[in-house]
Amino acid sequence: MLSNILLKNLRDQRKSFMWWSIGISALIILTILFYPSFADSPEFDDILDNMPEALAKLFVGAVSDLTSPEGYLNSQLFVLLVPLLFMFFAIARGSGAIAGEEEKGTLDLLLSYPLKRSRVLIEKFAAMVVTILAMAFVFWLSIAVGAVAIGMDISLWRVAEATLSGVFLGLAFGTLALALGCANSNRGLSIGVASALGVAAYFLNALAPVVDALEPLQKLSLFYYYIEADPLSNGLDLGHVGVLLGLTGILLSVALVTFNRRDLVT
């Protein structure tokens, strides 16, 4: 596990990954175990009807019925929890990749070895992708276990697509944090800026349908590309996936260029 930077970085995350996994699977399985009692109470849909529209958009998105399996999972998991979870998890990894190592002071030693800076960066990026995918798998598996346990009528394939949509969203923000860290070596700043942009993007996408002034700006929010097509019900929209992955690619290129150019900080 120490034979290259990618594996070493995965090894470093063993413990934190284990705790994340335990937390996520517990949360998801509990959520799903609640579903049968929820589905038996159609009055929950009335609550939704009576809720102010802006509030509903913020917390349950465009979901129109809370008691169908898709409606329940979307409102409980995929509208708010999944994207923020993947986003913050990825930002933590992305900001640590270069700026974290630089702040700790280990980057000097690492780069005195015969490795191109771009190689180090790509391995760190790959470690981030692998960790996010692994977390997505734990996530999907927990839903699958819960769904089978209560006999929920949901396509596990669609669950995988919706989860992947979260992975792509997370990757875009994680790579943003990575690029910020590559540009200025300050981990805190990289976390702060990426998170602030992420939260702003969430509100922009949630409120745009009900706030006229924000409506034309909705497509600037990455959350639009994550959830608008409702991947849990309809599958992934390739155009939207393309936007998220394309942006990730651009940010990675920016990270490579800026990191190659600048002076390392002691």
Binding site: K104, G105, T106, D108, L109, S112, T266
Partner: peptide, 8 residues
Amino acid sequence: YLPGELVL
């Protein structure tokens, strides 16, 4: 190379 401020 041995860095002046070695961090491992």
